[in-house]
Design a protein around this nucleic acid. Structure first.
Lengths: 243, 243
DNA sequence: TCAAAAAATGACTCACAGTCATTCTATTGG
DNA sequence: CCAATAGAATGACTGTGAGTCATTTTTTGA
């Protein structure tokens, strides 16, 4: 051990201090309304110092959620450990995902920003990959539940387990997002109990997996790019339809 | 008519010129990488002039999609006019929504930004409301289809029509988002044909509406706020579960 | 033709991300 | 104990871009 090791520990703990301060400031004011100066002040360091630990404002922000991802995974694991049927387990996992977004909604904010692409290009790919891996863990667990359910005949669907989880995941994500406070675009989503809403979708989907009378196309590989039209004007559609 | 009217026409047409130029620049470079100077240059005006027509960069950006919303509605209408069953109509509407996001994906970008909350507070509420109303139109149409389907017994669900459309809408939205290029977080979503993926979810959900063996909770009104915990640390969950 | 109103301008302010020459601190070798 | 040296911290500085506003240019109406 000794010097160089201690140095490293100290550096790491300083890093953690910065993260804690940053969390307080970012989560209080949001990403855009936070200046690096504010973070610097919160942890009693000079602005320049922050850049010795984090490459950019975005990178610092994203770093805030790396442990948040573990939390999500753990919340899901906790559900999957219980002795439940596959259907119940999946529902519990979706519920856990939902709870996570409510309990740690600032973390969820970051995920949203990532998913919308607002941070891409501004953060090290390595960091994004780490988050991806962590999220994939939770994903993998759900996949296994489905795989078993199919093997045991509890689900009759011809979808591959991965696709099933993807469907659940994407739907929940959309539902949670639409119910969020910031998404003020549809009043109606405000009048709905977000949890019930999310769970209802999940239940509906799972139901369809069990019965599997949905017409199946084979597997799904990305087709050729769709985007043919490149209009600057709102031409075509404009003229075709008259209400 | 005469002067004041002509003035108004001229003002409006200048506004349109700015919008066209802004569209070119914004859609080429994205919101963040576009400077108002660039837009000004594109339409051969001074930067200050832009601010006589639009209150802020965000406002200008959002204004770009106001006609885009009409397009979406029209694309959906076009499908709903065809002589189809309710199920087919709904699927066609979802497909139209999907096509819209692919054909006009810059418009969709703006919607995403709105829904993520990245623009809230920076744009006139009036403007956001206008967008909301326009989006609600498409929504209303789908709602009617469902209402009829329920009346005719084609759907057996006990969900209210509005809730059904919300479920479809939110799920599609999530699915489309996850499949977007910018959402690089899950490799697996890249390997999937986005259209098939979206449609599969929709089909699954609709299937569940038809059979309605999903356990129904009553109607859904937002419960009391969930957020109880306010931890700065990753305490609780951290210790409870060990993998 | 000219005064008043409206529109356009671009130099300016301000805020903030990110940099870097300088200062400070701790370690080490003599 | 005292330099010499390396590494960490600093904050003044630069660059960029949003938004403003006093001034200029254009239009209108008498």
């Amino acid at each position: 051990m000794s010097i160089s090791e201690r140095k490293e520990r100290e550096k790491e703990s300083r890093r953690q201090e910065i993260l804690k301060a940053a969390q307080r400031v970012f989560f209080r004011n949001g990403f855009e309304k936070t200046a690096m100066e504010m973070v610097a002040e919160e942890c009693q360091l000079a602005k320049g110092t922050l850049y010795r630990y984090f490459k950019s404002k975005e990178e610092l922000y994203v770093s805030l959620v790396q442990d948040g991802i573990e939390i999500l995974d753990k919340m899901i694991v906790r559900e999957l450990q219980k002795p439940l049927s596959a259907e119940e387990k999946l529902l519990a996992a979706v519920k856990a995902h939902f709870d996570f977004t409510q309990l740690y909604h600032e973390h969820f904010m970051v995920f949203k920003m990532i998913d919308v692409g607002a941070l891409s290009g501004k953060v090290d790919q390595e960091k994004l990959d780490a988050i991806q891996r962590a999220r994939a863990t939770a994903f993998e667990r759900m996949k296994n539940v489905v795989a078993e359910a199919i093997k045991r005949g509890e689900f009759k669907t011809k979808h591959r387990p991965q696709e099933i989880v993807m469907m659940l995941w994407a739907s929940s994500f959309g539902a949670i997002m639409m119910c969020g406070e910031k998404c003020q675009q549809f009043e109606m989503f405000k009048e709905v109990d977000a949890e019930k809403f999310v769970m209802r979708i999940a239940r509906g989907l799972i139901e369809s997996f069990k019965t599997a009378n949905v017409a199946e196309e084979p597997l799904s590989h990305r087709a050729s790019p769709v985007r043919t039209k490149k209009t600057d004007k709102v031409s075509e559609v404009e003229n075709e339809v008259n209400i």
